[in-house]
Design a binder for these strands. Structure first.
Lengths: 227, 227
DNA sequence: CGCAGTCTTGAATCTCCTCAAAAGGCGTGG
DNA sequence: CCACGCCTTTTGAGGAGATTCAAGACTGCG
């Protein structure tokens, strides 16, 4: 008979600290600040309204039955989410830091929603390529580049190539995004640090020292290059 | 210094046997049959028109610079493709068998296009979860289930659970879709065969003997279950 | 100060990959 | 019709990259 083994970790079920959708009464744009770790909507539940992430960081994820989790996208300021059709949410959405979200009107600018869906798709496809075909080092390098674009502090020192950004994702989040384990993510980040490609004193404040090297390692294809 | 190693295989560059877009002259719906291995459009090139796959099988893929390839979706009859925005194709599209495609009018039923984009996104996200978090056996089982739905022969024997379908993908295509190698795909398929879950005499005609077992192994999550 | 959680690091293990070779299928040409 | 070459598939043996397990360091917080 078939004997299928399954990875061990896989047991952390997200605490369903659900955010209640805003009352349908008030028509005007509603916005609120949510704390880190808040589940904005949950995979499989009745479809939530759509939101705009004004500021902060949100992870879109799916889970397998045994708890293994895959983050399918990381959203930064300006991105829309919860735009899916159908009766139930295909993914969960969770804030990774204090985030300012704004509930979108049902009859939102359709062009904007369409643009966002196309962006989601392009990113999901690029991410599939990362997950299926890149090595751990390439994955981590790609992630650092992506996040540096989405979360770069405006105060990038002008002459230097240096860019510093806040890594709202923990090592565990990175692992769930990149299809790796916490340990592998940590090892890769520290290898990049030892190589002088990136730097960090606190684990969540990262500086890119050598963007060219990072792009080289990331093997950024024609598609992602434009992101 | 950093010493990054890269998987070895990664060298098969698709022969750019490009299909010319139909002349813009004729306005009416144009359709044609293309042979296996035809590249319908190529990643990075000027954006192609959109198509409907009337019959056959098409793979949507991306490549890394060194040739490693990731198939991001497999399309069966009825699906639309080439709907992306932007100046260039984010992916390549290639027929995996004789396929009947139909070029879509620029001003296509927008609702249908929107539906297709949403489907692509849902599938891409589910596939990301597969690529990032499933084992080889789970990946192969999921693939067999997915393909059996898209390509099931109508003549499924009514009483039995048995479903037979043509596997238009070679083992190499399956590998590029599932983020595995040819050998691993072959081993998994034969393990499923030995376990009495599937059967095949010719490598490309597959019969599902025990769909329940297959779903069990595939760990189909809430999202993919509906597909 | 001590606890809990995250991060880091090392050692052992395992899954999947790489390399190699043989088996099978299919078209071409003698 | 069979021989041959080419390609895909299968199978085995060995190896590498990532995981697992374990322990220690660091951080924030009550």
């Amino acid at each position: 008979m078939l004997n299928i083994s399954v990875p061990k970790d896989a047991a952390h079920v997200a605490p369903p600290e659900l955010v209640m959708p805003f009352s349908r009464q008030a028509r005007s744009t509603q916005s609120r600040i949510i704390s880190p770790g808040t589940t904005i909507y949950f995979e499989g539940f009745r479809r939530s309204p759509a939101y705009r992430l004004v500021d902060g960081c949100v992870a879109i994820s799916q889970a397998l039955r045994d708890g293994r989790r895959q983050i399918v996208d990381i959203l930064g300021p300006g991105r829309l989410f919860g735009l899916s059709l159908g009766d139930s949410n295909p993914c969960s959405a969770e804030s990774l830091t204090y985030s300012h979200i704004e509930q979108l009107d049902e009859n939102l600018e359709p062009a904007e929603a369409q643009q966002e869906i196309h962006l989601m798709l392009r990113r999901a496809q690029a991410h599939a390529t990362l997950l299926g075909r890149k090595t751990a080092m390439e994955k981590v390098s790609s992630a650092v580049l992506d996040l540096s674009c989405q979360f770069a502090r405006t105060s990038r020192s002008p002459k230097r190539r240096r860019v510093t950004f806040t890594l709202y994702l923990t090592r565990a989040d990175l692992a769930d995004w990149l299809g790796l384990t916490v340990e592998t993510v940590s090892r890769c980040l520290n290898q990049l640090k030892r190589g002088g490609v990136i730097d960090f004193d606190h684990p969540e404040i990262v500086t890119i020292l050598d963007r060219e090297a990072l792009m080289e390692i990331a093997d950024v294809g024609s598609t992602c290059r434009s992101m």
